[in-house]
């Protein structure tokens, strides 16, 4: 049972980061960023490139691990800015912004997959283990360093972002945009620069989850699809724009996935997830958090 909880927590922390990125972007600039899969892979490949060079330099241990994390986030943040420059800035003040930016981000993800294929080939790229190998035993059950590290890093990162959004001037601007974009613009919050900042931050969160997920899976051109899908489902269930709701939904979905995989069948996971999301949405059409009922319209 404890193992199930642990694996649920690991899944939740990895997917939750992506979901919060999607959620933040939607709430503050009204754009559904479906190029998250591309951003995800960008982080993975940047971290992989760094690891290649770092091995050449003879870096090991903490330097290598921290570098992989930092470069993964950096690469994804840059990819987020790139997406913003193409799908957000030119379209931002035109009519039908939402549908058009949605299509633009989808086109970017279509192009992105092929670019990775051209640049890095179809092979899976492994990342070096960031948290080392080994297990610690706590009472009846144990967890690997990787699982522990994933949970800790994700929680710390999330806490940092929330703290920053609560306490800083920039965070205040972002929250103002989330509450009322027009009002924020009227009192002098720049929609464009704040939007790009949001895209960079959600990109960094996605990059972190990319590095964390690459500990289990590999980096490949299409490795962003599955996390994107799950991230979408979680952000939808959590209520777009609500961080507490998204965290709760991530926990719920992670738990459901772990439970289904353990006690039912792996093949039933999609149906269970879909059923849960549909149930949540039927009872709460704006998700668990559901605070943006009429503000966004």
């Amino acid at each position: 049972m404890i193992e199930v909880v642990i694996s649920a927590l690991v899944l939740a922390s990895m997917y939750g980061l992506i979901a919060i990125g999607i959620s933040l972007t939607w709430a503050s600039i009204g754009m559904l960023n479906l190029a998250q899969g591309f951003i995800f892979t960008a982080g993975g490949y940047t971290a992989w490139l760094y690891a290649q060079y770092a091995e050449g330099w003879g870096l090991e241990g903490v330097g290598l691990s921290a570098g992989v994390l930092v470069f993964g986030m950096l690469g994804s943040a840059l990819a987020g800015l790139f997406v913003g420059a193409i799908a957000f800035l030119p379209l931002q003040d035109r009519d039908n912004f939402r549908t058009r930016s949605l299509i633009a981000t989808l086109a970017i993800s279509l192009i992105g997959t092929q670019l990775w294929l051209i640049l890095f080939g179809p092979q899976n790229k492994p990342l070096p283990p960031v948290f080392g190998e080994g297990r610690i035993e706590i009472g009846p059950a144990g967890m690997s360093y990787q699982q522990l590290g994933t949970i800790i890093v994700a929680v710390v990162m999330l806490a940092l972002v929330i703290l920053w959004m609560r306490s800083s001037r920039r965070g205040l601007q972002m929250r103002a945009m989330m509450m009322n974009p027009l009002g924020a613009a009227v009192v002098g919050v720049s929609v464009r620069s704040t939007g790009m900042r949001v895209l960079a931050i959600s990109g960094a969160l996605t990059g972190l989850s990319s590095v964390l997920l690459a500990q289990v899976f590999f980096v490949s051109p299409t490795s962003g699809v599955q996390p994107l899908t799950t991230g979408l489902i979680i952000s939808l269930a959590g209520g777009l724009g609500s961080i507490p709701g998204t965290v709760a939904a991530a926990g719920l979905i992670g738990l459901a996935e772990a439970l289904t995989a353990r006690y039912l069948q792996q093949s039933l996971v999609p149906f269970v997830l879909f059923a849960i999301v549909v149930l949540i949405l039927i009872f709460r059409p704006r998700g668990l958090g559901g605070l943006l009922e009429d503000v966004r319209e």
């Binding site: 559904l32 479906l34 939402r98 949605l102 699809v225 599955q226 899908t229 799950t230 979408l232 489902i233 952000s235 939808l236 777009l240 069948q265 792996q266 093949s267 996971v269 999609p270 149906f271 997830l273 879909f274 999301v277 549909v278 949405l281 039927i282 059409p285 704006r286």
Partner: peptide, 28 residues
């Protein structure tokens, strides 16, 4: 069924995941 309760882009998000889920189902 969920389309009655959800609007616009929420529904788009929900259905975008469907293909991936079906693929998983067939694989498993």
């Amino acid at each position: 069924l969920p389309a009655r309760r959800l609007d616009g882009l929420y529904y788009a998000l929900l259905t975008l995941g469907l293909s991936e889920f079906m693929r998983n189902f067939v694989t498993q």
